[in-house]
Amino acid sequence: MTTTRTADEIRSEVAKAYGSRVRGTLLRADEEELPLAAASCCAPSPASDVSCCGDATTTSGVSCCGSETIDDVQITNVAKLYADADVTDLPSTVTDVAFGCGNPTAIAALQPGQDVLDLGSGGGIDCFLAAKMVGPAGRVYGVDMTPEMLALARKNQAKVGATNVEFRLGEIEHLPMADASVDVIISNCVINLSPDKDQVFREAFRVLRPGGRLQVSDIVWTKPVPDEVKGDMEQWAGCIAGALLESDYLAKIAAAGFVDVTSDAKEYPGGKGIASAAVVATRP
């Protein structure tokens, strides 16, 4: 089966899927007393009833890259990805909706004073982590196309008290950012959702300053994408159907003008060829 959906249909489906995933957390964010990261998706969590990336996805309805299955493939190692990050002081309304496949801030080696853009910032977890690293002299911008996510990110921002973070509703294919305005672009398991990845990388190139770095985590295939997966929107929103072959992904980044494009892809168990890739590229 091949996909006949238009780019707009894909965007709309993805926005709807992520909007509905975040709604419960958004309601909860209005409540006064929130447990701190007790039931988080991407922090170590002993008895989580809300697991985005672990095995307990069928009951929670909150899923990320982790819950969608292809036959017997389960992406289960995501819960460990934030293990080393300092998420313990983030509210659960931040960590519950961290639908990532990696933690770019753990590897991005951000420096104080840098300006950072997060493509698909969701509930804001990576923005808040990045904000700590760049400090008061730096700025972090989060762009997401899902209004519910942005509303939650704003509430989370008030709780976290991050004053050097700015969120805006926007499309990663049409960034509302001036040319050469940031030092580092991060993105966590989002670009695979875009129906026009070439344009995403061109836009990333445009808004990076010369010498700036694109440092993203994403789902890629290490073998050709099975035809039966390609047109399945559930699997698109689950980060699988829209994911590219790793070599194609890197080729698109290079085609946008980036140099020194490297990737470290770690395949998920199951042998189907689905991998989480840590990708780095530089704008010359």
Partner: peptide, 18 residues
């Protein structure tokens, strides 16, 4: 482009109601 609840809505117009 509207600014609502502190967030600039910078979605292209055809996606704004999505």
């Amino acid at each position: 482009y509207p600014i609502e609840d502190g967030i600039p809505n910078m979605l292209p117009p055809d996606l704004r109601e999505a």
